[in-house]
Nucleic acid binder design. Sequence first.
RNA 1: GGCCGGUUAGCUCAGCCAGGCUAGAGCGCCUGUCUUACAAACAGGAUGUCGAAGGUUCGAUUCCUUCACCGGCCACCA
Length: 883
Amino acid sequence: MVTEKKPVLTIDPSTLPSHFEAKNVEERWTRQWAEWQLHDYADDKPREETFVIDTPPPTVSGELHMGHIFSYTQTDVIARHQRMRGRDVFYPMGWDDNGLPTERRVQNYFHVRCDPTLPYDPGLSIETISDKEKKERPPRVVSRDNFIELCLRLTREDEETFKALWNRIGLSVDWKQEYSTIDNLCRRLAQFSFIDLYRKGHVYQVESPTIWDVEFQTAIAQAEVEDRPVPGALHHIRFGVEGSDETFTIATTRPELLPACVAVTAHPDDERYQGLFGKRAVSPLFHIPVLIFPSKLVSREKGTGILMICTFGDATDVIWWREQGLPLRQILGLDGRLMPVTFGTDGWESLNPEAANNLYRELSGKNLNAARKAIVAMLRVPPGEGQEPPLVEEPKPLEHAVKFFEKGSRPLEIIPTKQWFVRLLDKIDSLLEAGDRITWHPDFMRLRYRDWTKNLQIDWCISRQRFFGVPFPVWFPVNAEGEPDRTNPIIASPDHLPVDPMTTPPPGFDESQRNQPNGFAAETDVFDTWFTSSLTPQICTQWQLGAGRHQKLFPTDLRPQSHEIIRTWAFYTIVKALLHEDAIPWKHAAISGWILDPDRKKMSKTKDNATTPMPLLEKYGADAVRYWTASARLGVDTAFDQNVFKVGKRLVTKIFNAGKFVLSQTAEQHPITNELDLIFMRMLRELVRRVGESYDRFDYAAALKETESFFWNSFTDAYMEMVKSRARGKDTDEAGRGSAVASLRRALSIFLRLFAPVLPYVTEDVWSWAFAQETGNKSIHRADWPTEAEFADLAEPPNPASFDVAVAFLNTINKGKATAKMATGHPLDLLVVAANNATADKLKGIITDVMSGVRARSYRIEENDGLGDEEFEIIEARFAQDS
RNA sequence: GGCCGGUUAGCUCAGCCAGGCUAGAGCGCCUGUCUUACAAACAGGAUGUCGAAGGUUCGAUUCCUUCACCGGCCACCA
């Protein structure tokens, strides 16, 4: 690595800036880096010297907060290190502008609604209107493509804001590799992905009970479900038995589903209910006769040990429905309201249809909460004179976990609908194995993936009943009766993507045949947004666009992401890589922790405890904020603590000032020969080795900590103090002076480079004063990452351990000065210290520098073997009268 | 219910995988010093039954077991 040296620049100190002005420096270098195209992927190196990052595309509806800054900067530190190691870094940025949040925002902002059946209007002009006008006018109805245009228009503005912030914080992304999940490439690849999976037989459509969100009126996938504790109540309801006076009491939290009751079950060994099995129960109010059967799935301890099965109260109801071939009594509509039904008709058996219909009429059209209240009121009424009401006792309040769509506010329901699925349950072993082929940082995050994968219950539901998203590239033939034949879908050709089947006819058909007998009908569903975002590695590598690029860059090297989306983004990305190419999508997954607010709650926009980054960047500077993010290891949740920003800012100032001092010393090419200089270089070489190893493990936090501590304690506080006067030519010959300056400069150059991934601005600034020209590397961020090879020209010092002795000596004298209430820098006319023979011996070769470090003009060392190693005793310290 | 991570100074965190010098850093606190890189600094000081209890060991913050508390993941949720 040591090549022919270029002339050393001597810097005129008066030309150096007096202060580090973060904002100016940041703006200047951001501009300069862009001009130099410093972060561009060059595609000029073999794969093993290329480093590909599968950057998470942030959702663009809203503001970025500290959590984003945190994780994205951690990735940038890794990217910058890789770049300095000589890798051709592929570091893209995507925008996730596809999905519900954007859809809602665009609807409100432009006051429009989407009708996907409308044809695209290329001349459509939508202007922003005032809130007042929004109230007065109905929303404008636009086609799906026009709607997408509006999404692009609005998200582009957000993206510019995001981009400015990313630049400000110093993300070294290659802006030529920008994509957004709604752009043509992404829609094309998502549709291609579907076609590929369909052809391989991994995709199927089926009408079956599916997790349904009544608020957004769409199916969702298992991965998007979350449990929330909500208050509920256990209702004890008395059922009758057909043809007898017997009764029994079931317990349920969902009395509103009573009209949808299809069976009753208890544990086969439960003695209380032995006599009931095989008989028919009669539900109260609606007098529905239903089978009573035994099932081991029932717990004897819960509730009353006997329960009603409905269409559908929970997932177990679905199991019983399937296994027992129970009837389907769907009372709940897709909008979450009770649909009209007529008891006494086919499938709606009742022993007293008239009574049932009279009661149900009151319920029809009500939402679930209202229906529950109404039913409970009905249950309180005694069925006849002298009879007990079906409600055995007042409902017992309880708090229980209920499933919600993670973006929704109303409980999920299970409703039979027609949906598209990707078959996963038969691939669990392969998926687990793929997860193990990826290196997770930290490793325990792999268990999150394993847990989720092992416990998969349902195939991946990929269809959503929404407008804004990537449409299925699918049509259905319509038969002579005008009914679409869903069993024979027409799949688009991969050569004509992206396609919108709502506005484009399938091959061989004419637009006039849409929804006509013997014509065609379009699939109206769109993909789950994860169906697209699970392709980010393929999007980056432009799969199917140019084979060369994908073949070279896929699988990628690094997927950075946070841990709460392991079961979605990470999981689905692994699914896609496995099913499409039998590959893993990335070699490493770097899982960032969360930012916690002072109450140790996750900082997030929805919780309203998020801090906006701009004021902090203004106050502390980008480097200081980056210092904070780089102080946290991967996978570790971190408290938001402004003290750490302060520390970072202090370090930035220290680097700036140290750089100023070192580069102000008169310099020329000179070998490093002095013993102390060689000792320090030996230590620095050790640091370089360890920091390099940490970075290779993506442990930038350990690297930073170690660099910082060595820089501050050993370099500025000890070494610099000792060589300061020699570097100025005091009490030394030219060889000593030259060695000091050469050593200081080499150390500075190495420290700057070790700090550069974390503190790109201050290091670039100091680098530019002299090293840029000297080394020919105009930017530190393209300079060589320091390695031990840089020290190859240096002789081995005779006494490498004597640095610690020197530091111990400095500490003793400084302590003496502090005790005497004298300034540390106050000179001593005479200093007499005692030390044991071995300790004194270690100082011999560096004694001039050591005495200079404590500003002793003359000195004497007395031998006292009663003292321990590295122990000093001050015999006499004569302070100078001048100062 | 199963699992993962955490519990170290007032605060924020290292150290623990491969056990051993009086257990560390920064912030904060106290004392002193404007010293020609730096007062956005420097020098010095005080502060801990390393969550609890057992065990292994000559020796445990570190390894093992159990427990407690905090956070999370998964499952159950009549």
